[in-house]
């Protein structure tokens, strides 16, 4: 039995996707955007941040979300998770909480984009941070689950 088998690769895609997405958020929030605000002129800064946010959002929707959802559903099916089992204490509820928090994270990210478009910069910033912290919470719950 290969240790690097099919399911290990599925898990890899899921974990790597999460790591890269959260890493990308952190890179944006801690590195790219602060430097852009500091070093660019107001017009260039606004365009840059808007484009950066749009591009990140596009990659999230086109690449990250399908991979996470696809691999996540596949692993849940493989483990025999059913809708009913999501209510059961332990594994079920942990997974359900993780999914709920993930949905909140995605909603916050989307709302961040909308807030930015409406020039509600502070709200946009808050929502971005909610999304980032929330996604760390998703990772926390993910690591609480036994491996698939």
């Amino acid at each position: 039995m290969d240790t690097v088998g099919l399911w290990s690769l599925v898990r890899f895609a899921h974990v790597a996707g999460a790591a890269l997405w959260v890493g990308g958020q952190l890179a944006l929030s801690l590195v790219i955007l602060p430097l852009a605000r500091r070093l660019l002129g107001p017009e260039a800064k606004d365009r840059f941040t808007a484009e950066a946010g749009r591009r990140f959002g596009m990659l999230t929707g086109a690449l990250f979300l399908p991979v996470q959802l696809g691999t996540g559903v596949a692993m849940a099916w493989h483990k025999g998770v059913t809708w009913a089992s999501l209510a059961e204490p332990g594994y079920g509820r942990t997974l359900a909480a993780k999914l709920a928090l993930f949905a909140v994270v995605m909603a916050a990210a989307a709302a961040h984009g909308i807030a930015h478009a409406r020039h509600r910069a502070d709200l946009a910033r808050a929502l971005a941070v909610v999304s980032l912290v929330g996604s760390l919470g998703v990772v926390l719950l993910a690591t609480a689950l036994p491996a698939t």
Partner: peptide, 20 residues
């Protein structure tokens, strides 16, 4: 906003962990 966002995110995470 960063502080507010962090607080909100942390609260959501804690709620999720409690549910879990």
């Amino acid at each position: 906003p960063a502080l507010l966002g962090t607080a909100a995110g942390a609260v959501l995470t804690v709620l999720a962990v409690l549910a879990a």
